[in-house]
Design a protein around this nucleic acid. Structure first.
Length: 965
RNA sequence: GCCCGGGUGGUGAAAUGGUAGACACAAGGGACUUAAAAUCCCUCGAUUGCAAAAUCGUGCGAGUUCGAGUCUCGCCCCGGGCACCA
């Protein structure tokens, strides 16, 4: 038999498949259940297909073929995310029109994809830069506009100096342009926005409730990390607005805080430089010039400068005082650019003791720092200690280490219970606790100059000492504890606790502690002078709120604010509305006309698409290139016919990709973006796959579009992608990212040429878990290649026997191996564990390869299992070696019989005290009694059990017997 | 700093709390061959031992368990995301 000529055979079958479209096209009229399997469509870059694309497309191709063979009507389409800056930048550099370079690139992509045998439905191919497509992108703009979800406003925008355009917040990375790495500056410009923030929470739609961008995540099968990243991006935070009156002005500063419980520690208030209130208060400010200068200086700073230089700056507005509504204290007001104008109210109350940023600022400008929270340390109570000394000791260490890290030393004395345990350090005989703590602290720290500051609790209760640097140089301070001892409860009187270090516990709280089974030990956090303590704790020095937990205090203080009309509950989000204007050529024009008489006029739907002019110099000038094209720019107003001009900005390419998955349901429709009937048939997407880099951008925008459509009854679902999986990035052999400049890029074409498309597909699937990052290894491609050669040889050289009624000369083990393999491969494809599916097929081939006569039916079933992974070879063997008339992809996926997946004889492990002492071959179905008997009779086991009492014997069916002595 | 992932042989990696290293790659040895390629067979975590075998071993330290790569707690390191969001 000839060796496998992948170059010829693969080409032949690719041709065959392109002539048998029933193998890849989705059927509009079919009784089969639908399955929509989608890849994130690529941006057709000049670099061509990346091995990462191959990983993505192979995985979903395997899944699609698998689903088809399981009786599903599969929609598996592809298209091109063709608009975008790189094409335009390339055009500027090389003078080639973006339309041409993009379409050349697309041709190349199509070729490359066909070369690896992906079974896309090419009849549905779409291209976002074609007028047939962007007509509907513009329609979406109008749809949002008409429903109040698209609006224009003057805004500070991220302007990229080198791309000469505004970019979205999401496209600014570390203060630089995501595309070109150029510096981003802030410019005030009229910009279009989409109201994505309207969909953060659930809303009422025309046909019922629409889940919000947060809640919707709970009902879809997405990687947890992606869900969390989206939630973080939305950045919901529940807090409080507090009104601080400005003394002698009748004005208020409203601040937003999530930590109103710390408000008694507020020592000043800060306004963002852009805040309106700053100019409103200017007249009252004594150092007006200084404040103005600061504001001007800040405006000059770019975001990059602000980010690089995190040192806090600011200036006091002298003569202005804000009044804390809780204690009527007057605090100074500062202007500082560490406060973000666009978040919350653009003003904050500063609590240096409990906020790192305020702390830093207060240190720098020497402002007072006032503690209003103490930390809580919980340990098990004394009763628990009596039960289990060791447990408490360990748990205490863990808790202490967590709270104190290397900053502190402490010792715990349970002497009261006639039992000593010292976590770090200890008390020696005849030594008192105070001395012990001092000694330990000195030994550990190396500092000699220490003293006990205060000690509480005396000898009756257990004592808790903590030592910390920076308060009187390694002073020892005592912590307040609450302990339960019969007859001692009266000691926990208000008087008693009041005297304790820093903590002030109200009477009813004490009663509460007494009822706890495991009393808490409370301890004071030292405000040690080098950091703020930002964790929740117990409120102190806060009037009637003292003694409450942070959580309770937030609730009660907010209620108090609401009652006294000086504040309210408030939820803030980090997410802003989506800025979609781009001053660029290669994008979908925004369908708006500005008329002197009628104002802002949407282009009537019948006039769509607003086509991109072709006679444009697309070199960036700072103004949109479209503005230069007179034929494009000067138009008659659709309402009055008068002189007017077109909007000359184009839309962010993310707008095009926010709805493309809907278009695949009905890609040729000229009347609607997709017919309702088709949407209902195919959507939502059952499986969506692509890179994790789209975690927040594309996926959030697409969800927003879907929710907007759902709200107005265009679609009957509110989440577009039911199941999402990411492929991990493939690095170069050197472990670095593949890049042209490093010259370490692996071109899939070369691998196809040298090893074949099937070997490439299997190699990429065999590399490791699909969602993990992995490095390419050319050497390792040999593995899959060898495997395929073995498959080819077996089908060509072995005798395949038709087993009608019983197979003579065929090993009993082969059917078991077959059923095991069907089970494993089927389950692994379902679970996206392609690497282990392949390893099972290798095991199958290794086993079957040992025999000369093989059952034909089993081999055919194996070939079907292999076919989604190696479609070319499978088709070649199926039709040309086994001489079947039709494609293997019309076959039904094999089924397995659970009973047939079990080995008759298994190796039983016998452990003695957890160590393996023997392995015995037994019948898999053997009873517990028998297994134990066999195990205990083993000579090797007896060696260890002889003369010892057997306490317990554990049996795990078909696996092991564990003897405990 | 915060939030997610990870850490297992020379390498890529397997392992519902139950035989750690399946399946591969590379390497070494052997068979076939005039030779090479291809193919086939053997070895392949460490230490000790002639061997049988024993002990150790999944980043580090503890814990739970008859039994831990897997569960709990603490720590270290690497990768990714967010980052003055109050």
């Amino acid at each position: 038999m000839k060796s496998y000529n992948h170059k010829k055979i693969e080409k032949d079958w690719q041709k065959y498949w392109s002539e048998h479209l029933e193998l890849s096209e989705a059927q509009e009229n079919s009784a089969k259940p639908k399955f929509y399997c989608l890849d994130m469509f690529p941006y057709p870059s000049g670099a061509g297909l990346h091995v990462g694309h191959v990983e993505n497309y192979t995985a979903t191709d395997i899944y699609s073929r698998f689903k088809r063979m399981n009786g599903f009507n599969v929609l598996h389409p592809i298209g091109w995310d063709a608009f975008g800056l790189p094409a335009e930048n390339y055009a500027i550099k090389k003078g080639v029109h973006p339309d041409k370079s993009t379409h050349d690139n697309i041709k190349n992509f199509i070729n490359q994809i066909k070369n690896i045998g992906i079974s896309y439905d090419w009849s549905r191919e779409i291209d976002t830069s074609s007028p047939e497509y962007y007509k509907w992108t513009q329609w979406f703009f109008l749809f949002l506009y008409k429903n109040g979800l698209a609006y224009k406003k003057k805004a500070k925008a991220n302007w990229c100096e080198s791309c000469k355009t505004v970019v979205a917040n999401e496209q600014v990375v570390d203060g630089k342009c995501e595309r070109c790495g150029g510096e981003i500056i802030q410019k005030d410009l009229e910009q279009w926005f989409f109201k994505i923030t309207d969909f953060v929470e659930d809303t009422d739609g025309e046909n019922g409730k629409i889940s919000g961008l947060i809640n919707g995540l709970d009902k879809i099968d997405w990687p947890n990390s992606t869900k969390i990243a989206q939630k973080n991006w939305i950045g919901k935070s529940e807090g409080t607005i507090v009104k601080f009156q400005i003394k002698d002005s009748g004005k208020n500063v409203e601040v937003f805080t999530t930590r109103v419980d710390t408000i008694f520690g507020c020592t000043y208030v800060v306004l963002a430089p852009e805040s309106k209130l700053v100019s409103e208060l200017k007249e009252q400010v004594k150092n007006k010039e200084e404040v103005e200068k600061y504001i001007i200086d800040t405006k000059k700073k770019t975001d990059l400068e602000r980010m690089e230089n995190k040192e806090k700056t600011g200036v006091e507005m002298k003569g202005i005082k804000a009044i804390n509504p809780f204690n009527n204290e007057e605090v100074p007001v500062f202007v500082a650019d560490y406060v973000i104008a666009t978040y919350g109210t653009g003003a904050v109350m500063a609590v240096p003791a409990h906020d790192e940023r305020d702390f830093e600022f207060a240190k720098k400008y020497d402002l007072p720092i006032r503690q209003s929270i103490v930390q809580v340390l919980e340990t098990n109570g004394i009763d628990k200690v009596r039960e289990d000394k060791e447990t408490i000791e360990r748990k205490s260490v863990d808790v202490i280490m967590k709270h104190w890290k290397e900053d502190a030393y402490f010792c715990l004395d349970w002497k009261y219970n006639n039992w000593k345990s010292f976590i770090i350090g200890g008390v020696e005989e005849g030594e008192n606790i105070e001395e012990a703590a001092l000694r330990e602290a000195r030994e550990e720290s190396g500092y000699k100059n220490m003293k006990v500051v205060r000690q509480v609790g005396g000898e009756i209760h257990s004592n808790f000492f903590a030592v910390h640097k920076d308060v009187n140089r390694y002073a020892i301070r005592n912590c307040v504890y609450v302990e339960l001892i019969d007859g001692e409860q009266e000691k926990l009187s208000e008087e008693h606790t009041k005297n304790h270090t820093g903590l002030w516990i109200k009477k009813e709280k004490v009663a509460e502690f007494i009822n706890l089974e495991a009393p808490k030990i409370y301890w004071d956090t030292f405000l040690n002078g080098d950091r703020a303590t930002t964790e929740d704790g117990v409120v102190i020095d806060s009037g009637e709120f003292s003694g409450l937990s942070s959580e309770e205090a937030r609730e009660k203080m907010t209620v108090w604010l609401e009652e006294s009309k000086s504040g309210e509950r408030k939820i803030n989000y980090r997410l802003r509305d989506w800025l979609v204007s781009r001053q660029r050529y290669w994008g979908a024009p925004i369908p708006i006309i500005y008329c002197e008489k009628c104002g802002e006029v949407p282009v009537p739907e019948k006039d769509l698409p607003v086509k991109l002019p072709t006679d444009v110099d697309f070199k960036p000038t700072g103004e949109s290139p479209l503005a230069i094209s007179k034929s494009f720019h000067d138009v008659a107003c659709p309402l009055c016919g008068g002189e007017s001009r077109r909007e000359s900005d184009t839309m962010d390419t993310f707008v095009c990709s926010s709805w493309y998955y809907l278009r695949f349901a009905d890609p040729k429709n000229e009347k609607e973006f997709a017919a309702k009937k088709n949407l209902e048939k195919w959507l939502p997407v059952d499986l969506y796959m692509g890179g994790a880099e789209h975690t927040v951008l594309h996926l959030l925008y697409a969800r927003f579009f879907t929710k907007a459509l759902a709200k107005y009854g265009y679609v009957n679902f509110d989440e577009p992608f039911l199941k999402l999986r990411h492929q991990g990035m493939i690095m170069a052999e050197d472990g670095r990212k593949m890049s042209k400049s490093l010259g370490n890029v692996v071109n899939p074409d070369d691998v196809v040429e040298n090893f074949g498309a099937d070997a490439l597909r299997i190699y990429e699937m065999f590399m490791g878990p699909i969602d993990e990052m992995k490095a390419w290894s050319m050497q390792n491609v040999n593995g899959p290649k060898n495997f395929l050669d073995k498959v080819w040889k077996i089908f060509g050289e072995k005798e395949l026997i038709d087993c009608g009624n019983g197979c003579e000369g065929i090993s009993k083990e082969l059917p078991i191996m077959l059923h095991k393999t069907i089970k494993k491969v089927t389950n692994d494809i379902e679970g996206f564990n392609f690497n282990t599916a392949i390893s099972q097929m290798m095991i199958f081939i290794n086993e079957f390869g040992k025999h000369d006569k093989l059952p034909k039916a089993a081999m055919e079933k194996f070939l079907i299992l292999l076919s989604p992974f190696a479609p070319h070879m499978a088709e070649e063997i199926w039709q040309n070696v086994l001489e079947h008339k039709n494609s293997i992809f019309l076959e039904k996926w094999p089924e397995f019989d659970e009973a047939m997946t079990k080995d008759e004889e298994v190796e039983m492990v016998v452990q003695v005290n957890g160590k393996i002492r023997d392995r015995i071959k037994i019948n898999a179905e053997i009873s517990e009694e028998e297994a134990k008997k066999i195990a205990l009779e083993s000579e090797k086991v007896k060696l260890y059990t002889e003369g010892k009492e057997i306490r317990k014997v554990i049996f795990v069916k078909g696996k092991l017997v564990s003897v405990v002595i």
